[in-house]
Each structure stands twice: as C-alpha cells, then as structure tokens.
C-alpha cells in the first residue's frame, strides 16, 4: 500500500510540477503584461502544490529523499505526470487549451480528494482547490475569448483542441497504483470524473463556438513512465543546475 501511495503522490506532484515548469518558461514572453503575470502566478501555485505532494512522497520513500531530490534527480521514465502537461507551449491558443483541459480535471480531482481517507491528502487538496478555482476561471475565460474571437484565433484554438484531445483520455484512466488506493478510499476513481469534465467542456465550448472532437484513439503512458519525447527537454532544462553541480544550494 505504501508503494502505491508513493506512486500516486508522484502522479499528483509530477503533473503539477511539469505544467508549472512549462508555464514558468513563458515568464517574460506573455502576449501582454497582465497575461505574463497571470501565467507566472499560476505556475507558482502549481509548483507550490507540487512541493506539498512531493514532500509527502519523499517522507514515504524515506532515506535521503526530499522534494528536491525527487524533482531534480529523477529521469523521465521515473516521472509519473500525465502526457498532456509535458506538451509544448505552442501558440497561446495551444497554451490555454492545454491549461483548460488540465485545470477543470485538476479541480474535480481535488474536489474528490478533499474526502480522501488519507487526511494529509485531503488537507493538501482543500488548500489547493482554492487556487485551482481561479485557474479554472481564467483558462475558461480565455478559451471563450479566443474561440469566439477573430477568425484567426478561432482557427488556432480549434486546432489546439484537435491536437491535444488525444491526451485527455489518460486523465480518466487509473494506473494500478490508483486502483489499489481507490478501494481504500485514498485516491479518486478518475473514471467517475469524465462525465462532469466533459459536461463542463461542452458548455464552455458552446460559448466559445468550438467543437468537441469525436471519439479517437487516446495516447496514454505517462502514469507508467512512458512519456512523449518532450519531457526529456523539460527535465534537461529544469534539472540542469543540480545535474551540473550536484548538491548545489541557494
């Protein structure tokens, strides 16, 4: 059970961390000052939440592990994030659609985890969901503005939806670790979140004049360490300092 709990905490923490790292790369490159700041704020929230999850994971692992060794000294196959968050930033429509898919899923996950029988998980979820509510509002607002914006912004946003949709299936498929914890009331059965997530997307997309893609094969594997080629590049940049100067401290 402890091994499953460790794996699950990595799943939660790694997805937050990698998306936070992706967004942090936009700092100084946002399309407008306010957007630049907003993106960095969301990145900070996600990285802060990742620290809570990874610190807990490190305590279970024991030994010399801490949040930093988990973040900076694991290779891509040891990462448990979903594939969606490691996808490149692309244009702003791409960045926002990726964010919206994740934010709404993230909200429903945390909402369910507030009832986790593991009180530490419940506490982190209750803390994080207040921040994620702001994230949901913001990315949803942008999906509508871009989707129902100009012809060009609509075209690009729809293209992002069509391209990223294949990474949404994984969000609702449990890993073995998750399944073991669902029975103990520790983890949420993500399959049950699909309907509310899809309903939220449907309402949002109607307002944004965007179309939800039809059924198609889904890309999975992140929760088992099978990643797209993009994750290696993210880690190379994020881990550069600790890899080049092991043990370096601020």
């Amino acid at each position: 059970m402890e091994e499953a709990r460790y794996e699950y905490l990595l799943q939660l923490g790694d997805s937050d961390l990698i998306l936070g790292q992706r967004l942090a790369a936009l700092c100084g490159h946002g399309p407008a000052l306010e957007e630049d700041i907003a993106m960095s704020n969301v990145a900070l929230d996600l990285i802060g939440q990742a620290r809570f999850w990874l610190s807990y994971a490190a305590e279970i692992k024991g030994g010399d592990a801490d949040e930093d060794t988990l973040a900076f000294l694991r290779d891509a196959p040891a990462y448990r994030n979903v594939l969606l968050v490691e996808q490149p930033n692309g244009d702003y429509g791409h960045t926002i659609v990726r964010q919206c898919f994740y934010d709404v899923w993230h909200f429903f996950v945390l909402q369910a985890l507030m009832q986790s029988t593991d009180t530490r998980i419940a506490d982190i979820a209750a803390k994080s969901i207040k921040e994620v509510q702001y994230h949901v509002e913001r990315s949803g607002d942008w999906v509508v503005r871009l989707g129902d914006g100009t012809e060009e912004s609509h075209r690009r946003t729809q293209a992002a939806v069509d391209k990223l949709w294949r990474y949404t299936g994984e969000l609702f498929r449990s890993s073995e670790a998750e399944q073991a914890l669902v029975e103990a009331g520790i983890a949420v059965d993500v399959a049950t979140l699909y309907e509310p997530w899809r309903a939220h997307m449907q309402a949002l997309f109607e307002e944004a004049t965007l179309e939800l893609p039809g059924d198609q094969p889904m890309q999975c594997g992140g929760k088992h360490g099978e990643h797209t080629e993009h994750l290696g590049y993210v880690l190379a940049e994020m881990q550069h300092l600790q890899r080049s100067y092991p043990g370096a401290r601020w």
Partner: peptide, 12 residues
C-alpha cells in the same frame, strides 16, 4: 462549497 458550474464568459 467551491463551485465552477456557472463559469461564463466573464467568470464570477
């Protein structure tokens, strides 16, 4: 209870 069901164009 935090609720995201009434998200519209202008948010809250």
């Amino acid at each position: 209870v935090i609720d995201i069901s009434r998200i519209t164009r202008s948010g809250r």
